[in-house]
Amino acid sequence: MKQDAFSRCHPAVSFLFFILVMLLGVLIQHPAFVAAGVCAALAYYLLLTGTKGLKLLLFSLPLLIAVAVLNPLMNRTGRTVLFTVFSIPYTLESLIYGTVLSGIFLLMILWCGCYGAVMTSDKFTSLFANLIPALSLLLVMVLRMIPNFMRKGRQITGARMAIGKSVAGDAKYTEKAKNGMLLLGSLTDWALEGSIVTADSMRSRGYGTKKRTSFLQYRFTLRDGILMFMTLFLGAGVVFSMLRGDTAAAFTPLWDVAPLSPFGLGCYLLLLLLPTFLHLKEALTWHILRSGI
């Protein structure tokens, strides 16, 4: 994995950050905020994933364009008619609205991509191990079972193929379907058998004899505290600005967007750029350290 300063923070900090920015991202429709959000998220996303992430974005591009272009066909409340398609008035206002919507959509894709790279499954589960131990363990076991199930599935498929019971190839459709059903049955039997062993293994290791504690992978340090405070502080600033009406925006039937508030936008940008700042700060430190040698 790529080295990233923010990824090494306590999971609670990362989790809070992502929850906050995603919520704000959905709630705020003000075009300036959306544009700033996309820029900030894109910067961090590219830092995390590099060129690999860019490819994913290119794939989602058609969808984003479709959202923007097709919105006027659904939403017909604009005033400025550009032209008519199938006797539907295609208006400028709803086109702008669609563009903003697809910006929000892109923002969510970017944040989800960052979330996936930063919040690995074990971070998530260890975060909730203390709060909801049973649910966290369940999640961990599911995460263990999925690849196990897939491996067994491949094994069975291969084994059955070598006795002429393939689910692919040029056999009759009905036969292939029947083989597929048998494969599924076989997999279920096997999984049930395995789960008995797993249950034995759990009880044998004292599951349920005492109240569970959990192995702490991550320690909450002062730095994490400061970061969390900054996240909350900047978040509060944005919310304050929202309540003041700085982010109000209506596009149809008439363009009615609140004037730009430097305070709100500043808070928002600073908040979103926190991980990027951390990343760059560390890169800079390394650069200085290295050139000092």
């Binding site: 499954s121 074990d122 363990l137 961990v140 076991m141 995460l143 263990r144 196990n148 058998e193 395995g194 789960s195 062993v197 797993t198 293994s201 759990m202 290791r205 004292g206 599951y207 349920g208 004899t209 005492k210 109240k211 569970r212 504690t213 959990s214 192995f215 702490l216 992978q217």
Partner: peptide, 30 residues
């Protein structure tokens, strides 16, 4: 069976599983 005995998805977690069940204090567990 090496596979079915394993309960969790990560090596560190599997090592800690028994101790978690026994309620060992976090520092002792580490």
């Amino acid at each position: 069976n090496p596979d079915d005995q394993i309960v969790t998805d990560k090596v560190w977690h599997e090592l800690a599983f028994g101790l978690e069940s026994l309620g060992v204090a976090p520092n002792a567990m580490r």
